[in-house]
Simulated assay, not measured.
Amino acid sequence: MNFLKVFLRSIALIPGVVQGTEALFGAESGEQKKKAAVEIVGAAIDIADAVTMKHIADSEQFTRGLSMTIDGVVMCLNASLWAKH
């Protein structure tokens, strides 16, 4: 599986991971929940990476990008009707 497929699969995980971390860590700060979400998606990427024998060239930059993507998903979810009670 090429990197783009692994990346897009990982991106598809983010909304579910964000909702899951919100449910599990609801009382925690937003930063703590984001850290948990990054770690969960990062672990999924690491597993996929190990299976496909592909490597991310700059894991720190990749993690920063993943963190920004999670921020964007949270913004979208918070702005949606889903977040309205």
Rank of each mutant, 00 (worst) to 15 (best):
V38H: 09
L13N: 09
E60G: 11
H85N: 14
V51G: 06
S59C: 02
T63G: 05
K33Y: 12
A43N: 15
H55P: 00
V41A: 10
C76P: 00
R64L: 11
K35Q: 15
E22Y: 10
I47N: 10
T52Q: 11
K33V: 11
S59M: 06
D71Y: 04
T21S: 12
V51F: 04
G65L: 07
V38I: 14
E28W: 11
I45L: 11
L81I: 12
Q32N: 09
N2H: 10
R9L: 05
A27K: 15
S80E: 01
I56Q: 06
D49P: 00
S29T: 15
L66C: 00
E31G: 05
E39G: 08
A79F: 03
I45S: 03
K54I: 00
N78M: 04
I40S: 03
N2I: 01
H55F: 01
V73L: 06
G72Y: 04
L77A: 09
E28N: 14
Q61F: 05
V18Q: 07
K35I: 07
L24H: 11
M53P: 05
V38W: 11
Q32A: 08
F62L: 02
E31P: 04
N78V: 06
E22T: 11
A12P: 02
G16L: 04
A37T: 10
A36R: 11
A83Q: 12
K84D: 06
N2P: 12
S10R: 03
G42R: 15
K5C: 04
G16T: 12
A37C: 06
L81H: 06
P15T: 02
I70K: 06
S10T: 09
A36K: 13
V51Q: 09
A48C: 09
K35R: 13
M75W: 01
L13R: 12
N78F: 00
A50N: 14
T21A: 13
I56N: 05
N2R: 11
L66F: 00
F7K: 00
E31K: 15
H55Y: 01
T63D: 07
L24A: 15
S29A: 13
I45H: 11
G72E: 02
F7N: 05
V41R: 00
Q19K: 15
P15M: 02
